[in-house]
Amino acid sequence: MGRGRRRFTPVLAGATLRDRLLACGGALAALCVTGVLGALVVGPTAALPFLVAPIGASAVLVFAVPASPLAQPWPVVGGNVASTLVGLGVLALVADPFVGSGLAVAGAIAVMSLLRCLHPPGGAAALMTVIGGSVIAHAGPAFAFVPVGLNSVVLVALGWLFHRLTGHTYPHRTRRGDPAERRSRFRAEDVDRALAEIGETFDIGREDIGLLLREVETHALVRQHGEATAGDVMSRDVVRVEVHDTPETARALLLAHDVRTLPVLGPGGTVVGTVGLRELVRPAARVGELASPPLTATADLPALALSRALTDGRAHAAVIVDAAGRPCGMVTQTDLLVALCRALTDPV
């Protein structure tokens, strides 16, 4: 029975039931809106379809795997439009539908690869154009833009809005220039050599592979040496400022206590940001106007789990908060280094 259940496990890494249900809802809403807008533009009496079938496959990528290089706006729009144009060209030059179908899909792959807009539904767009009959033939090159291009642009726009509302990043952006990359035990060229050695193509960008491997390093470190919690290593004497304090007050506290980061407290004493000398170089009347988003954690988090966040060049300290969001300690880069040294020297 267990083996049977595993056969239905999602093959996508990181896929959760919540994400899949959200993807279903997003695709449902997007295709309905795309169809309505397409009908308004094409018109109810036009012979052209107002919604083309490959857009359904594009919706799977945009809503189910928004981080995929194949699901980004240029592949969706450029891939579908370019492939349709290839199909129209083959339709005009090749009479045999079987030969034409193969040539259209092969040509679409070549053109999308050259234009860096590889998009699997583009192959379906090229094939649909060849076998679509006289309606598409009479429409000519305009068919690639209305309805195909229109459908693609509307789908991308709705995908952007949907992922903004649900907390995903679309278009997908990988953090670049990460100092943690320079400190890790592998480099981008190592990823390139590994990919060349494996000899396979993966539906994930090289930068994302590097980011994933660095996260794996962090979690492996926590698993092997993660007994100490943030509460065990944190400094409990927290120097803090209020949102309405002046920058001069914050600067004086930083220098007097020889610290690099101060939590900024809002109403109820909750942490709403952090401030250091880097933020205080900008002019402002109140500290709250200068505060950066805080790096926070709970006391029961393994201390080494903070290693990536405290080495990415963005934060010098993590604010440890209680259940109400009030500060109860600080874990600095020095605290983390001490915890790491203890973990690596303690007998197993």
Rank of each mutant, 00 (worst) to 15 (best):
G268L: 02
E248P: 02
D300H: 10
Q224H: 14
R282F: 13
A157K: 01
L253Y: 09
V153H: 05
R223C: 09
T129V: 15
V111E: 00
A29H: 07
A188C: 02
G140V: 05
S235T: 04
L51N: 12
F186W: 08
A30Q: 13
T249F: 03
L161Y: 03
S152F: 03
A124C: 13
L12W: 08
L310A: 11
P247A: 10
M128G: 06
E248V: 15
A142K: 06
V153T: 07
A142R: 07
A299R: 10
L290W: 01
A252N: 04
P10A: 02
T9N: 05
D208G: 11
P10C: 03
L221S: 04
T261P: 12
A317V: 05
P293H: 02
E181T: 03
P49I: 07
G89S: 08
L336R: 00
V105S: 11
L155F: 01
P75N: 05
D245H: 11
L277S: 12
D19K: 09
A142P: 01
G87I: 14
G100H: 03
Y170V: 09
R326H: 10
L253F: 06
G133P: 12
D237Y: 00
G205T: 15
L277M: 08
A305H: 05
P247W: 10
S101L: 14
D258Y: 02
P263F: 05
D96V: 11
G325D: 04
G133S: 12
R236G: 12
G123D: 08
L28P: 05
H163G: 01
V62L: 04
R7W: 15
V238R: 07
G102W: 11
N80V: 05
V154P: 04
A291Y: 14
F50V: 14
E189D: 08
V130M: 11
A196Y: 09
Q224C: 09
L213D: 08
A46V: 14
Q224A: 13
A57R: 07
T166Y: 14
T166C: 15
L12Q: 12
A285K: 07
A250F: 14
A343S: 01
R20K: 13
E200T: 07
A82C: 13
L70S: 01
L340H: 02
T174D: 15
R326L: 01
L150A: 07
A13H: 09
I204H: 12
V241Q: 12
P147D: 04
R308I: 03
G102R: 07
L155E: 01
T298F: 09
D322K: 05
E217K: 06
L340F: 04
